[in-house]
């Protein structure tokens, strides 16, 4: 069991169940479809961005541009739809094309110029935030009928919870991300690069293609997160979602992904997001706690999970067996 590569994932899921149980024991009202539905809706944009971040971190990189890309997307959509008579779906396609190319460009710079992802994506972060400012410094509202239609789509569960489209989109994102990461050659290459780029190269992994792909995925999902955020707030504001990349990183780490790369799960990130959302919900229910407690608890959790990973990797190396035990020859 301790040797199972999935152990960190199980621990994250167990933590979520435990946290939920604690919440419910304190506030039985939290056991409702309403809370669950809101958890999904409120964290949809963060969740989608964190799914992309999972790819990046498993490959041993980091993407600091996520928050800026979300803000840029929101402003871009609002401004384009205000100034030109384009249908939102066209605007969505445009912005996704931009963010995917932006991510791919960062990946190309990281690979071909051999620059650290931290620096490249930090520059990307300033660039995107700057572009958002240039388009508009004020919050620009979106008033398109199609937005109202999309926002009006929900499934009303028994108990009164409204499962909205954006929550569903997040779940869909995770399903697709899981398949891509665990069941495709591209996904395997992401893990391989995270393990050791030098070895991966000698084993025949196409490093350039994969690195560019990884940052394109992260950029594209940040763009999708921006679309979701735009639907969620019906506005675009260049100062929005500052620091969201850090929340995404936190969710990825709480989800059991190693910051040093090479090991992790998309599903873990999903539960990481839920755990973080749950803490927030608890604080709302309590009413007396300052919302800063969210940050403090998340900080504590992060620390605990990093310690846990240390412990686990230590435990697995200690339990390595001698060669003789595996041989069958006489």
């Amino acid at each position: 069991m301790i040797r199972s590569p999935r152990l960190p994932l199980y621990i994250t899921i167990a933590t979520f169940i435990l946290a939920f149980a604690i919440c419910v024991s304190q506030y039985p009202a939290m056991l409702s479809t309403r809370v669950v539905a809101n958890l999904l809706t409120d964290n949809a944009f963060l969740g989608i961005a964190a799914a992309g971040m999972t790819f990046v971190i498993i490959s041993g990189g980091i993407d600091l541009s996520v928050g800026s890309v979300i803000a840029f997307t929101g402003v871009f959509l609002a401004v384009v739809m205000r100034d030109f008579p384009v249908h939102p779906l066209v605007a969505f396609a445009m912005v996704l094309a931009i963010t995917i190319s932006f991510g791919a460009a960062m990946g190309a710079i990281i690979h071909y110029l051999e620059m650290p992802p931290f620096i490249v994506t930090l520059a990307g972060m300033f660039l995107m935030r700057g572009l958002a400012y240039v388009m508009s410094t004020d919050s620009v509202p979106v008033t398109h009928d199609f937005y109202n239609t999309l926002q009006g789509i929900y499934w009303k569960a028994p108990g009164g919870g409204r499962f909205r489209m954006i929550g569903g989109l997040m779940i869909l994102t995770y399903v697709v991300a899981m398949i891509v990461l665990h069941r495709t050659k591209f996904g395997q290459n992401v893990y391989a690069i995270g393990g050791s780029p030098v070895t991966a190269k000698l084993m025949g992994v196409p490093i350039a293609k994969t690195t560019i792909g990884i940052y394109a995925v992260s950029g594209g999902l940040a763009g999708l997160a921006g679309i979701v955020y735009s639907l969620y707030t019906s506005a675009g504001y260049s100062l929005a979602t500052v620091g969201v990349e850090l929340d995404a990183i936190a969710a990825v780490v709480i989800g059991g992904t190693l910051l040093s790369g090479g090991s992790g799960f998309v599903a873990g990130t999903f539960f990481g997001i839920l755990i973080m959302g749950l803490i927030q919900t608890y604080i709302v229910f309590d009413g007396s706690l300052s919302s800063w407690w969210t940050k403090i608890v998340i900080g504590g959790l992060l620390f605990a999970f990093i310690m846990l990973q240390k412990g686990l990797s230590w435990a697995t190396t200690m339990r390595r067996k001698p060669a003789a035990e595996f041989a069958t020859r006489s």
Binding site: P5, I179, H182, R183, T184, K185, Q188, N189, Y191, A192, G194, G195, S196, V198, T199, A200, L202, M203, G204, V205, G262, S263
Partner: peptide, 25 residues
């Protein structure tokens, strides 16, 4: 450099030429 310690034995053996079904590993 031999193999990747963070992948399973099977993944290491097949990395780059994995058998697929319906396009998935």
């Amino acid at each position: 450099v031999n193999l990747l310690p963070n992948l399973t034995v099977a993944d290491n053996l097949f990395l780059g030429w994995q058998p697929t079904r319906h396009g998935l590993l």
